[in-house]
Structure formats: structure tokens, C-alpha cells
């Protein structure tokens, strides 16, 4: 799969049996909806309260950043907030193929977890954090 930002071939990282596409150039992450759905069902099975809908349909965000194209279908993606505002900015495919996180957004991910965020959002974001502790610079927390 090609990175929506710099068009280089992404590598695939398997973390806890979930596959994520990772760009070696820009450290961006593509979370495919199939894999996201799989993660949601795993989290549900382990007892975490989670509703897939408030994840897969985040609210529309107004943002000046350039619009990227979905690496799966090529449609222009929408900027969305994941979690309570100000939340984490992500690009969402209009056809539901998946979510794209810029590397800058990845850096914000862990710090942005507020008390009013839903458990679902926290679970997804902490999953991303645990998948890339080195890239996020969080592996030194001990």
C-alpha cells in the first residue's frame, strides 16, 4: 500500500495480531477498517466497554490541512476528530476503508487522552501508542 502523504510503499507491522500499515518515511500509520473492526471485536471479548460506531464515524472537523487521498479507494479523505475535542486529528475514508494518522498526530495521541473521552477512543489510541512506543518516544516511560 502507498503512503497517502509521500506515496512511498508502506511496511506492515503486526502488533497483538492486528496489522497496521506504517510509513518508514513519515512515520504515519494507516489503520485499515477491517483491522480496526477486528480490534474492536477483540476488545469487546476481553470485557472492555466499546462501541464501534462512535469510532468509525467520527465527527466532521474543519481544518486547513491538505486533504489526502485514501490509499485503498483513492477518494479524498475527510478530516475528523477522534475523541472529545480537541482530540486527535485523523483522515477518514468517505467509503469507510480506514483511518490515517499523520506522524505529528501520532505524537499528540497519548497526551490528548482526556477524562471525558469514551473508553472506545482511549482503547484505540492506547493500542496505537503501544504499537509504536519507539516512534512516539514513549518507551522510556518505564
Amino acid at each position: 500500500m502507498k503512503c497517502p502523504k509521500d506515496k512511498s510503499d508502506m511496511i506492515v507491522v503486526e502488533h497483538e495480531k492486528i496489522e497496521l500499515d506504517y510509513c518508514l518515511q513519515c512515520s504515519g500509520v494507516w489503520f485499515d477498517s477491517e483491522e480496526l473492526e477486528l480490534l474492536v471485536s477483540v476488545l469487546k471479548a476481553t470485557g472492555a466497554a466499546l462501541s464501534g460506531t462512535d469510532l468509525l464515524r467520527p465527527r466532521e472537523a474543519e481544518h486547513a490541512e491538505a486533504r489526502r487521498k485514501c490509499p485503498v479507494c483513492g477518494h479524498k479523505m475527510q478530516k475528523v476528530w477522534l475523541g472529545e475535542e480537541p482530540g486527535v486529528l485523523a483522515d477518514s475514508c468517505p467509503l469507510g476503508d480506514g483511518l490515517w494518522f499523520d506522524s505529528g498526530e501520532m505524537q499528540q495521541v497519548l497526551q490528548k487522552l482526556g477524562p471525558q473521552d469514551t473508553q472506545a477512543t482511549k482503547d484505540i489510541i492506547s493500542f496505537l501508542g503501544s504499537a509504536f512506543p519507539f516512534t512516539l518516544g514513549t518507551d522510556k516511560r518505564g
Binding site: 511496511i11 507491522v13 502488533h15 518508514l24 512515520s27 504499537a131 509504536f132 512506543p133 519507539f134 518507551d139
Partner: peptide, 8 residues
């Protein structure tokens, strides 16, 4: 070579 994005 490849730097592992998980552990570095």
C-alpha cells in the same frame, strides 16, 4: 537494514 517501529 530496518529500524523496528515498535522497539527501535
Amino acid at each position: 537494514s530496518l529500524r523496528c517501529p515498535h522497539c527501535g
